[in-house]
Each structure stands twice: as C-alpha cells, then as structure tokens.
Computed example of a mutant assay.
Amino acid sequence: MNRGAADDAIRARFLRPTYAVDADAVDAWPASGAADTPGEDARCRVFLAVGNDGRLKAAFAAFGPPVVIACADWICERVTAQTVEITHTVTLADVEKALALTPTQRYAGLLAIDALSNAVINLGQ
C-alpha cells in the first residue's frame, strides 16, 4: 500500500469509524479495557460483549490523533463476529500491515491492542 493510500485509509476510518461506541450505551457493555500513551496524549477504550452465539461484539472510544481512532476501529472490526480466541492472535504486525502504519504511528496499534487485551481480561475469558 503506498503512503497516500495508507493515509486515505486512516483518514476514512477517522472520519467515519464504524465501531465507535455511542456515549449513551457505554454502561450497556459488560466489559471494557483501557490503555493510554501519555507521551502521545492518546487514550483508547475497547468494549466487548459475547452474544448468545459465542461471537464477540466490539466497540471503542478513543482520544488522540486520527491514527488512534483508525487503529481502534480496525481492531474492533477484526474481532467482531469472531470468538474470543481470535483476540489472542491479533498482533501489532497485523495492524501495521492493515493500515500501513509508519514507525512513528506504531504506538497507536499498540494502544488499541493493549485496550483489547485489557477488555478480554475484564470479560473473564
């Protein structure tokens, strides 16, 4: 993916995130996990629920540069409609490849993965 296409992918997710949580629905999620990067002034919170079919539903709330929102949205897309086991296989390399992150943007992928991991712990699975 060339840099222009990568920037467009990040911009599109930032402007129209599919998995952003509705602020009024935050309390309805059974589990959440948070992570932050004080140096980048970025925060991410991932919300998880397991449906009756054993499949995950995911959403996020994030603050920071567009790349943070893009990474959180991608993480939620990746795990939604999957089983909890998929969360243990998502790596920084997956996020970097999917969004063509630059080395200076890696922190956003780590932030989203850390928030996801914490949400899984709080889900108790």
Score class of each variant (00 low, 15 high):
residue 32 S to V: 04
residue 24 D to H: 15
residue 19 Y to F: 15
residue 119 A to D: 01
residue 116 L to K: 06
residue 55 R to D: 05
residue 115 A to F: 00
residue 35 A to E: 01
residue 88 H to I: 04
residue 21 V to A: 13
residue 79 V to C: 07
residue 23 A to W: 08
residue 80 T to G: 03
residue 49 A to V: 02
residue 38 P to T: 12
residue 28 A to D: 14
residue 50 V to I: 14
residue 112 A to C: 06
residue 12 A to M: 07
residue 90 V to A: 00
residue 125 Q to M: 11
residue 39 G to C: 07
residue 27 D to G: 13
residue 119 A to K: 00
residue 107 Y to I: 02
residue 72 A to R: 00
residue 33 G to Y: 00
residue 21 V to M: 02
residue 101 L to P: 01
residue 60 F to K: 01
residue 67 V to W: 02
residue 74 W to S: 00
residue 122 N to G: 06
residue 18 T to G: 05
residue 91 T to Y: 05
residue 13 R to A: 09
residue 116 L to V: 08
residue 75 I to V: 15
residue 57 K to C: 10
residue 54 G to E: 02
residue 114 D to R: 15
residue 77 E to P: 04
residue 16 R to P: 05
residue 36 D to R: 09
residue 125 Q to G: 15
residue 39 G to E: 14
residue 59 A to W: 00
residue 88 H to F: 12
residue 84 V to A: 14
residue 63 F to S: 12
residue 113 I to M: 12
residue 101 L to M: 07
residue 88 H to T: 13
residue 120 V to P: 06
residue 45 R to E: 15
residue 113 I to Y: 11
residue 66 P to Q: 05
residue 55 R to A: 14
residue 110 L to E: 14
residue 53 D to R: 06
residue 3 R to Q: 13
residue 78 R to W: 07
residue 60 F to W: 04
residue 53 D to K: 03
residue 99 L to Y: 09
residue 78 R to M: 09
residue 59 A to Q: 01
residue 23 A to H: 11
residue 95 V to Y: 04
residue 60 F to C: 04
residue 44 C to I: 02
residue 86 I to R: 10
residue 91 T to S: 14
residue 56 L to K: 06
residue 106 R to P: 06
residue 110 L to H: 10
residue 113 I to D: 07
residue 23 A to D: 15
residue 31 A to L: 05
residue 96 E to Q: 14
residue 6 A to G: 07
residue 106 R to C: 07
residue 95 V to M: 03
residue 16 R to G: 11
residue 92 L to D: 08
residue 114 D to A: 15
residue 22 D to L: 10
residue 116 L to Y: 02
residue 89 T to N: 13
residue 84 V to K: 05
residue 69 I to K: 09
residue 81 A to F: 09
residue 34 A to W: 06
residue 72 A to M: 01
residue 95 V to K: 02
residue 90 V to C: 03
residue 94 D to Q: 03
residue 34 A to Q: 12
residue 97 K to A: 15
residue 16 R to V: 12
residue 43 R to F: 09
residue 121 I to Q: 14
residue 95 V to F: 04
residue 7 D to W: 08
residue 87 T to S: 12
residue 17 P to E: 07
residue 47 F to D: 08
residue 65 P to A: 15
residue 48 L to H: 06
residue 98 A to S: 13
residue 26 V to M: 11
residue 44 C to N: 03
residue 43 R to E: 08
residue 80 T to A: 11
residue 106 R to G: 03
residue 50 V to T: 14
residue 111 L to G: 00
residue 67 V to S: 02
residue 68 V to G: 06
residue 29 W to H: 09
residue 124 G to P: 03
residue 109 G to N: 06
residue 55 R to P: 03
residue 84 V to C: 08
residue 106 R to F: 12
residue 4 G to C: 08
residue 2 N to Y: 00
residue 99 L to I: 09
residue 61 A to Q: 13
residue 31 A to N: 07
residue 11 R to I: 11
residue 5 A to C: 08
residue 31 A to W: 01
residue 48 L to P: 08
residue 8 D to I: 08
residue 80 T to R: 02
residue 17 P to I: 05
residue 75 I to N: 01
residue 108 A to T: 10
residue 74 W to I: 00
residue 6 A to D: 07
residue 62 A to M: 02
residue 20 A to E: 14
